[in-house]
Design a protein around this nucleic acid. Sequence first.
DNA 1: GTCTATAGAAAGATAGAC
DNA 2: GTCTATCTTTCTATAGAC
Lengths: 195, 195
Amino acid sequence: MARKTGSHSDITGPRVRAAAQRLFARDGFAAVSMRQIAAEVGVQAGALYLYTRDKEALLFDLLKAHMDDVLAHWEAEPKGCAPLDRLEAFVRSHIRFSLARAEAVFLSYMELRNLTPAHFARIEAQRRAYEDQLEAILRAGQEAGVFALPDTKLATMAIIAMLTGVNTWYRDSGRLSQGRVEQIYWDMVRRSVQA
Amino acid sequence: MARKTGSHSDITGPRVRAAAQRLFARDGFAAVSMRQIAAEVGVQAGALYLYTRDKEALLFDLLKAHMDDVLAHWEAEPKGCAPLDRLEAFVRSHIRFSLARAEAVFLSYMELRNLTPAHFARIEAQRRAYEDQLEAILRAGQEAGVFALPDTKLATMAIIAMLTGVNTWYRDSGRLSQGRVEQIYWDMVRRSVQA
DNA sequence: GTCTATAGAAAGATAGAC
DNA sequence: GTCTATCTTTCTATAGAC
């Protein structure tokens, strides 16, 4: 897809990020070259440096945008008041959102170690903020006596790992619909925490 | 650690694999060079090719050895007869074994995509064989009426993801002992499957 | 804004001396 | 069995033309 000289900064920038996300998710950050990304977009390698300071900054931008998205999505979610309702909302929202953003989710837990320490710390803080949303629900339920959890932090980690694991095997063409998967996981989570 | 000429094939081979495992786990397969591995062992890069055909084969050997280890370890585990006892044994064994082999576990789910298709298929088959061990327990419990699971395959994936997640946050110096973590996870798993 | 060209470093892998 | 030396390729990033 050769391209001639011209001005396309408004569309090329997003296309660079989209191509990078796709390739990083498929082959891994370290295994993807700037030339590959450029070829995918249809520009020369040198042109990429108009849109990113370097390769690591490109990865950081993707992870940062994703984490902003994760947090904003959960903020916007309609939520009940009772801890059990809030937990159900979290479980269903997490699965639905993660499957809709499979590449970004995959990147955000596979490629963290390729960030600079400063960038790593910023993404890690956002990840922790998201986990804290779930832990707050579990603690509220614990105090209300509807959940029976010896350790809400551990339960938080266990539930998130379980939910994010869906991304490793779920396929749209698979045996079970997304709604069915949500239902089954919610059943398991509910039973695992309930008093 | 400079080394002089001499014959050390019996000890250098294992040292090469140990160094590769450590570096691959820390920085990622694609980000580690053969020169780095050689420096870690104390030999020159060229000498590595006495112990592996190429870099990918080195990764495959590590993953293969780990999966053999996983399957042998589960075979050797003393197990009860009742599905609930067998499930408890699986949960505790999985956590204990995974924490004892943290680097190998990490590699085996982070670096699969760097294998050739043929090598990938072999590791994938072993991983599936391990998952089948858990699914057999869940199916037996389901048929005996002690478990209530709408889908044993999904429950298998959910439980394994939850258990393997321990590796992402557990530290020996942390707040909870390994035995305590095992206990809490087993409580959650038990409740999530029980009728 | 994108191109061509290239600097400069580093990679995987091999050859041949010892 | 290990070393030094090197071939060949590929990489990130930059310079300067258009």
